[in-house]
């Protein structure tokens, strides 16, 4: 009888130990404070016209939960200790040697809107070898973002022909030196820099504001999304330019009216400007004619956002750009309007 009791008790104990088997193959994730600070490339890419003499990329930190709870969307929590970030420039296209294009490099960060670390003689110990493409830069403690700027050979790609092949390079972060385990770096993402061809659609164009027909068409087209533009008369406007930049369309209406603007302690009189911007959803590249579409959201009076979209086609002939667009915004539509710009 006693033996039986012991056997039964043992069997029951064994059964209870089976409770723990339920958590087989469980991996505890490193979340919360165990999730490290991540150094990453701030952008996926950028591009400048072929005669530009510099380009840059930025390195920043991934947002984290704001310990104070003030910023609900999170914010960058700067590092507590400086780390060295290694990077590499490579995957060059449209040229054979990196050193033919990149002449020099520097790194800095913004201290405020008017001052950089360079102005304050703070060195980020940038090291860059244009022959190998490898480099390193300090990401200092207490800083949210740093920028590495390359001085380029502005003549290398500056031609007068429409290029049909890519001219680009890529930057990757490759690792960290002297970093502790609570800081890591994203080495998977790349920053692609593209040389934009000013024989194609990219570049800046001007509308003849003295051409009443063209001016009125412009006002009708963009007055759809901007009440200030809608009410403009030709006599109010000094200049209208549009620009197809990297992934972005921008129209600037420079008014004759001026205002006093103070920047970094200096005050000067400047023309007032109205800007219209949109992200390029579609754009024909390496061609003199193609499709174009750009869109963005505009905040409404009640705080909601509504999308506008312009789509159509372009045709380049010499220094002249003919742009044919239709527009949509809220429930309103603008039928096809053709505008002519000159470079």
């Amino acid at each position: 009888m006693k033996k039986l009791k012991y056997i039964l008790s043992l069997a029951l104990l064994l059964a209870f130990t089976a409770c723990d088997k339920r958590n087989d193959n469980v991996v505890t994730p490193n979340v919360g404070d165990a999730f490290p600070q991540i150094i990453k490339l701030a952008d996926e890419g950028d591009g400048e016209l072929e005669d530009e003499d510099k380009f840059s990329f930025k390195i920043d930190l991934a947002d984290r939960v704001d310990p104070s709870g003030e910023s609900l969307e999170g914010k960058i929590i700067p590092l507590k200790k400086t780390v060295k970030v290694n990077f590499e420039v490579g995957d060059i296209k449209g040229f054979s040697k990196l050193s033919d294009y990149i002449k020099d490099a520097k790194a800095f960060y913004e201290i405020d809107d008017c001052t950089t670390s360079e102005d304050a003689n703070i060195s980020l110990n940038l090291v860059f070898d244009a022959n190998t493409g490898k480099g390193s830069v300090d990401f200092p403690a207490g800083v949210e973002e740093i920028e590495v700027e390359f001085e380029t050979n502005d003549a290398l790609f500056d031609d007068d022909v429409l290029n049909t092949t890519d001219r680009s390079l890529e930057v990757k972060l490759t690792g960290l030196a002297n970093a502790e385990s609570d800081v890591t770096v994203n080495t998977a993402n790349t920053f692609k820099y593209e040389v934009l061809d000013d024989e194609g659609i990219h570049g800046e164009y001007e509308l003849d504001v003295n051409n009443a027909a063209e001016f009125n068409k412009f006002i009708a087209l963009f007055g759809l999304i901007n009440e200030d533009v809608k009410g403009l008369k030709a006599s109010d406007v000094d200049e209208i330019t549009i620009e197809f930049a990297y992934d972005e369309f921008k129209a600037v209406i420079k008014l004759k009216e001026t205002e006093m603007v103070t920047e970094c302690g200096e005050t000067e009189e400047k023309n007032k400007e109205i800007e219209i911007e949109g992200g390029l959803e579609e754009l024909g590249l390496k061609t003199l004619s193609g499709d174009v579409e750009f869109a963005d959201d505009i905040e409404q009076e009640d705080g909601t956002e509504a999308e506008f979209k312009y789509s159509g086609s372009f045709e380049i002939s010499g220094k002249e750009l003919v742009l044919t667009l239709t527009g949509e915004y809220n429930d309103d539509e603008i039928e096809e309007i053709t505008l002519t710009f000159s470079k």
Partner: peptide, 24 residues
């Protein structure tokens, strides 16, 4: 999922926390 979490632990720099969703 455990295999993915092992990868997450080994490569946290490839993952982005959705902070506003977490707060809400």
């Amino acid at each position: 999922v455990s295999s993915l979490i092992r990868y997450f632990n080994a490569n946290p720099s490839q993952f982005e926390l959705q902070i506003a969703d977490k707060a809400a």
